[in-house]
């Protein structure tokens, strides 16, 4: 059951996934391009500071790419089921839980492809640059973080897309209402009474989501390929 499900997911997504896999491979290489000569070359290299600063410019692109891959995987997972009204899935002899988990598992395995590409690309990038003393390349850590970020983005959106359209709209609507309502209340009310800092609900929730123990914490960690 799992293998055909994986194959189906692959067929559904390959047109979109292949460019993303290529991008995953290329991104680390692009991030280090122009940073200096290959090992063994006698040409002048950039300073450690220059290298770290220049690679830092690319850092936001890594989590963004991971999020894009996760979203693509998740939405493609349910796309045809939604379009075909779920009739096929519901006529198959397995419970809805089994079906959803099989599907999710298939996407998780496909997430390994861009992560593997990132790993190879990061190793190639690390090899391509002669690093000054004190700097190190972290291709394994970067690829692992990339994989985690894809999986988190994928599972979040997969869970949302697994619901009915009505459920999904409810979730999105509530999130939007929370953010807009929270911002408005913060701006209009809390600022007026001088309590903005203490009751910044939206800020606190965002902080938890991205920095605390929230699901998106992995997106805000250190994405450096090259660091001290």
């Amino acid at each position: 059951m799992y293998q055909p499900m994986l194959y189906l997911h692959w067929k559904q997504i390959r047109v979109a996934l292949i460019p993303l896999v290529v991008a995953s491979f290329g991104l680390p290489l692009v991030a280090v391009s122009g940073l200096g000569p290959a090992p063994g070359s006698t040409a002048t290299s950039l300073s450690a500071y220059g290298i770290v600063e220049l690679t830092r410019l690319w850092l936001p692109v890594f989590p963004a790419l991971a999020a894009a891959i996760g979203a693509t995987l998740a939405l493609s997972a349910w796309n045809w089921d939604h379009r075909l009204g779920h009739v096929y899935a519901l006529s198959l002899p397995l419970t809805r839980v089994e079906y959803a988990l099989l599907k999710m598992g298939a996407g998780m395995v496909l997430a390994l492809l861009p992560a593997l590409a990132m790993w190879l690309g990061a190793h190639a990038a690390a090899w391509a640059v002669a690093l000054p003393e004190g700097l190190n390349a972290y291709p394994n850590q970067l690829a692992f973080r990339f994989l985690l970020a894809i999986m988190i983005a994928y599972s979040t959106l997969f869970a949302m897309a697994a619901g009915t359209v009505r459920t999904t709209l409810w979730i999105v609507g509530l999130a939007a209402a929370f953010v807009v309502g929270g911002l408005l209340s913060a701006d209009l009310v809390l600022t007026q009474v001088g309590a903005f800092e203490r009751f910044d609900v939206v800020g606190s929730v965002m902080d938890w989501l991205y920095r605390g123990t929230g699901p998106f914490q992995v997106f805000t960690g250190n994405w450096s390929l090259i660091d001290v």
Binding site: Y7, L8, K11
Partner: peptide, 14 residues
Amino acid sequence: HVYPMLTVAEQLRY
């Protein structure tokens, strides 16, 4: 209700 991106053989296997 079948998946249009599959071939007949693939659909049968699935």
